[in-house]
Design a protein around this nucleic acid. Structure first.
Lengths: 143, 143
DNA sequence: CTGCGTCCTGCAATATTGTTGCATGAGGTC
DNA sequence: GACCTCATGCAACAATATTGCAGGACGCAG
């Protein structure tokens, strides 16, 4: 998902310690071409070196809170996590396959939405806009 | 949310029996100015006349499947339910307050997205596009 | 009008996902 | 060395949703 991000730097500029666990979570997410669920993430560590699921959840929460990761909803129960938009990658919509549960990133230019106008007129504070396209992916269509 | 929908008719045109429970669920959702969670819905019935939560979940699933209701994600765990777009109400985005958990409907013209183009070019089948704005609502900002 | 099938509902148990409380251990500071 | 803060782990718990099974309503064939 991102080869240009320096994860230690991301953490330090958020005043967070760059611990091994945090770096590993970031590497797993950053190394994936699509957002991952918390379960996906700690399953990766089950194979190589155990990381407690609570630790994974806490790291995910922390990084979302510091805007390093973004939490994506799926229409099902589990949330998915991807790198938050930053100078290296623009905010973009996602496609969620209702059949296999895979979530994919759409290209940033897929939707052009004017959230600036909304931010000026909306009587509240807007943190982010999430766009998700639901359907059936091409792999599942073949079967 | 909708005074024009005839719920029995909606059910019948989907070949579903218009049972009391289903009509009541539809009336609760249709009578609300904003989408409701499954818990909200069966709490309404706790006061007036009990309906089992499993029944509520099953009715919600069934109606979503038949495109009478739409399931909205919140970024938290509970899903919210509103009437699906139909001839009486256009598809629209929603605002979710991260502080109080209230979900509100935005006016349909808030975002104009070109999903037709995407449907033509995307190598998969697109069922719907969900847009959610997250932030803090004006009520919560006051406190 | 009796027996059979189908559908809706309820209850209990279970599953999935995420969170909290508390203890331990590492590393820094006085 | 005593003390602090922070990250982590473990166990228990909480919130949300689903499954299995049984009973009851309703229509229909005989």
């Amino acid at each position: 998902m991102c080869q240009q991000c320096n994860y230690s730097q991301l953490l330090e500029s958020a005043s967070l310690e760059a611990t091994t666990n945090r770096l590993q979570v970031l590497e797993v997410i950053g190394g994936s071409h699509c957002p991952l669920s918390a379960t996906d993430i700690y399953n990766v560590f089950d194979r190589t070196q155990a990381m407690n699921k609570v630790t994974v959840y806490r790291i995910l929460d922390l990084l979302v809170e510091h805007n390093i990761l973004e939490r994506l909803s799926t229409g099902r129960r589990a949330a998915y996590y991807g790198l938050a938009p930053n100078e290296h990658h623009a905010s973009h919509a996602h496609f969620y396959c209702n059949r296999c549960g895979q979530m994919d990133c759409l290209r940033p230019e897929t939707f052009s939405i004017d959230s600036e106008h909304l931010k000026k007129t909306f009587p509240g504070e807007i943190a982010r806009v999430e766009i998700r396209v639901d359907g059936i992916c091409k792999n599942c269509l073949r079967h």
